[in-house]
Write a protein that binds this DNA or RNA. Sequence first.
DNA 1: ATGGCAGGGCACCCCTGA
Length: 255
Amino acid sequence: MKIATWNVNSLKVRLPQVLEWLATHTDITALCLQETKMDDPVFPKAEIEAAGFYVEFAGQKTYNGVAIIARAPIENVIINIPNFEDPQKRVITATVNGIRLIGAYIPNGQSLDSDKYPYKLAWLAALKEFIAEELKQHPKLALLGDYNIAPEDRDVHDIKKWIGGVLVSPAERAIFADLLALGLVDSFRMFEQAEKAFSWWDYRGFSFKKNAGLRIDHILLSSTLAPQCIACEIDVEPRKNERPSDHTPVIATLN
DNA sequence: ATGGCAGGGCACCCCTGA
């Protein structure tokens, strides 16, 4: 089976692309979406189900919003991080085919001197605690999503342009390392990859054409699940669509 | 140093994203 993550930057705009992508990737069992940007009453549940999928979601107007689309039943759903007060809808957790999936849209942080930066760090600390708890009950666990963290300098097209800002700060990278210390493995780095492999490119300045991107969308696998992973790839094709998301899917193959 | 593109809300300009 394959599991995937995709920040779609508005599901209203991107739903046709998502359904088309799933139609041509029939081996993807579960897809986690971020930035659906829609409240639950207007979520296109019927359309997705009519296309043959199960779907669970948690959204809000304008910002954030997450969902899981799957070809198998989606069970034992948890919305957001328990015991962490947060009006923003950024996490959906569920079990599909016996794998515990945590789909997350980690805060951007905006800048190191913004109020949103300490929110990001506190949010990540709460997420880490939640994952530690989930791992006790669900050893086969994957954390998929838009992390808004480029873990290493090789995940940044030009580190000089990003240093001193969010996404690459030592504190954020330290929390990423804390996730790895829970036993999680960055599935992308389990395999040999091309250099300058990114999952996001700014809409501005022909960034995609110049491959001036960041690798900030990740699939981390628990130590129990990682040995089942035989591939991880970034699919850049949807970034070439008309009206693309600025992010592109990441796919992990499990056997 | 700044803005550049895109989406959404809401009213035609502003906020946010990364």
